[in-house]
Design a protein around this nucleic acid. Structure first.
Lengths: 192, 192
DNA sequence: GTATGCATGTAATACGTTACATGATTGT
DNA sequence: ACAATCATGTAACGTATTACATGCATAC
């Protein structure tokens, strides 16, 4: 029986495979990457990355070569195997489904919607104001990062980052428009 | 000692609390809601909802009143307790943080970025085309839902839904622009 | 000599997913 | 009579989060 390895992998697994396909890296290097770049947000905690690397190795998708044998804590550099690259490519080639699209769901909007309902327009307005200030700061941060990093990025990465900027800008515009709209409702209530 | 109940709750917990604050519902009613409306995507599977209701009850945030006592499978209707409403309001009142903002991270863009790098522009183009078609269909679906449902929605919900529509429209525009850009690169490679 | 960064990991816990399972009620 | 829908749950499994833990190298 041809033991089709159909283990399901997490997004973190694929993110790691992709990064290792660029160049071999250590677990620590991956942590730094997740901490420093606006990559879809993966936790940079050791409790997620080292177990992920361990299971990728178990599944034969990456190999580790040890450096600094002498010391007690050797540095391990990981690289994808042929099977690992194949797995990555299968994932990358699969067509987009509706489910995936929706999975990028918004936590914050849930809060906003209920805030207006449960706490009223004033609280919803406060929510939007804190959202707007965080968004404005983050958009600026992303734009700075884009200016600085995009020239040295591959086309795909650059485009993906641009969507990140665009999305947050849309979100920001929406927040400002929503603030105006809530303001109108508030005034109307005052007047009536 | 005043036992501050600082148990952390999941987004699903808060979603359920919010929905129960609108009106008392059964677990099954919640499942139907998650299945039918474009709510940030929560699983409609019993394996997530019933355990969530059970722990909310354990924590004293909801109570259950049983209907149809006679039958073997009674119907339980849940409603938030005073503590539950308080918990919900604390969550709704908290200011937005940078971390939350980023948590709405994009899975698909990771795939796209690596696809271009690992598989090349042709595969990235195929990815974008499948993305575009799914996006276009979903945007239309959302717009239909908006037209139909928004008149009977509270302002907060309506605004949140509008952001959903706007975001996906931005995403769609980006995909179309990215397709054009990848096309230019492809042609340039052919020519040179 | 002390703090910070490099570098690796484990343990406890809880949550979500998938699959399994039961049985009542309603419609055809 | 049969199918679909109502309605509720459990069990196995894997994974993420948090906190804990070790120890070297370098800079101040």
């Amino acid at each position: 029986m041809l033991r089709t390895v159909s283990a399901r992998h997490t997004t973190l697994d694929y993110a790691i495979l992709g990064l290792l396909s660029q160049e071999p890296r250590s677990g620590y290097a991956l942590r730094k990457l997740f901490a420093a770049t606006p990559m879809g947000h993966f936790s940079d905690s050791p409790g997620s990355i080292y177990p992920a690397l361990a299971r990728l190795r178990r599944r034969g998708l990456v190999t580790a070569t040890v450096q600094n044998r002498r010391t007690l804590r050797p540095r391990q550099v990981f690289r994808p195997t042929a099977a690992g690259l194949r797995t990555l490519k299968v994932w990358l080639s699969a067509p987009v489904t509706r489910e995936e699209l929706i999975a990028a769901g918004s936590d914050l909007m849930l809060r906003f919607a209920f805030a207006e309902e449960v706490l009223g327009p004033a609280a919803a307005l406060r929510f939007l104001q804190s959202l707007e200030s965080v968004l404005a700061a983050y958009v600026e941060e992303l734009e700075r990062y884009y200016e600085e990093a995009s020239p040295s990025m591959p086309l795909g990465g650059r485009l993906a980052l641009r969507l990140g900027v665009e999305s947050h800008r849309t979100h920001l515009r929406w927040a400002q428009e929503a603030i105006r709209e809530l303001g109108r409702v508030g005034r109307r209530k005052e007047v009536v």
